[in-house]
């Protein structure tokens, strides 16, 4: 993971052959970039903020949350910044009224999917979903809540899994498989019935593959994975993959 990060920054600073450089415009800024980078990292490097949710530096990109969608002139479809590489001369808009409106609705859909009542959540105040909603100015959810009532798994002595707060971003799955190498988590079933589960859909403490490293808890953007014994608002996540920017 460290290697990967190093490579990224090195690539950005030195050793680019002129023919390996593309020029592009993001939100009016004329930039040059490495075609192997994504629109998201390029934007970040130039202090242009694109909201994300399923993206986490250091693990593979997923492209599922659709919060990072941006407009590229001439492309028929919106593209996820976290997975799109720049082509020469493209003009990208990350803040057009259209994409801002879509992002808002997507986050509202997420909030309508499961129970996200912040006032009783351990990550209240430190939740990426909450931050996203507030950055986007969401005060009211236009869709009726679907709120299935899912069982909380508190079997593990150190951690709690509350699927009612899960946004199915798969960050826990990827961090566990790609960094820890345990692959304890995966997303089971499909569609609206999708759920994160350990091993053969077992209580966490029975999951033999779990090493107890807690990386998934730190990677989780919401209160779906948290440490035992935290009161409302006490769960702060340490991003061990914190970016340098």
């Amino acid at each position: 993971m460290t290697d990967h990060r190093l490579q990224n920054s090195v690539r950005q600073r030195h050793s680019l052959h002129p023919e390996d450089i593309v020029t592009l415009v993001i939100d009016g800024q004329q930039l040059t970039a490495d075609p192997n980078d994504t629109l998201l990292t390029i934007a970040q490097a130039h202090n242009i903020h694109i909201p994300t949710l399923c993206f986490l530096e250091g693990i593979s990109a997923y492209g599922g949350c659709r919060v990072c969608l941006v407009e590229v002139e001439g492309y028929g479809k919106l593209v996820p910044a976290c997975l799109t590489h720049p082509a020469e001369g493209i003009i990208v808009r990350t803040q057009s009224p259209r994409v801002i409106e879509y992002r808002k609705k997507i986050v509202e859909l997420l909030l309508s999917e499961r129970n996200h009542i912040c006032s009783v959540c351990v990550t209240n105040g430190h939740c990426e979903l909450q931050q996203l909603a507030s950055t986007l100015g969401i005060t009211h959810i236009r869709y009726p809540g679907l709120f299935p009532s899912l069982a909380i798994d508190a079997s593990n002595t150190r951690f709690i899994h509350d699927p009612n707060r899960c946004v199915l971003c798969s960050r826990c799955v990827r961090v566990c498989a790609e960094i820890e190498g345990a692959h304890t988590w995966d997303i089971i079933h499909r569609g609206i019935k999708s759920r994160v589960s350990a091993d053969l859909n077992q209580p966490w403490k029975e999951a033999v593959t779990c090493t107890g490293c807690g990386k998934c808890v730190q990677a989780c953007p919401t209160g779906a994975l948290s440490e035992q014994g935290k009161a409302v608002g006490e769960m702060l996540k340490k991003r061990y993959t914190e970016s340098t920017t």
């Binding site: 304890t184 995966d186 091993d199 053969l200």
Partner: peptide, 22 residues
């Protein structure tokens, strides 16, 4: 059966369960 297949194909248990339910 899933446990056995996971063992023989060197696949994570959670992956086998994910595929069987997807």
């Amino acid at each position: 059966t899933m446990r056995y297949i996971s063992h023989m194909l060197h696949l994570p248990l959670s992956r086998v369960y994910a595929v069987a339910t997807f």
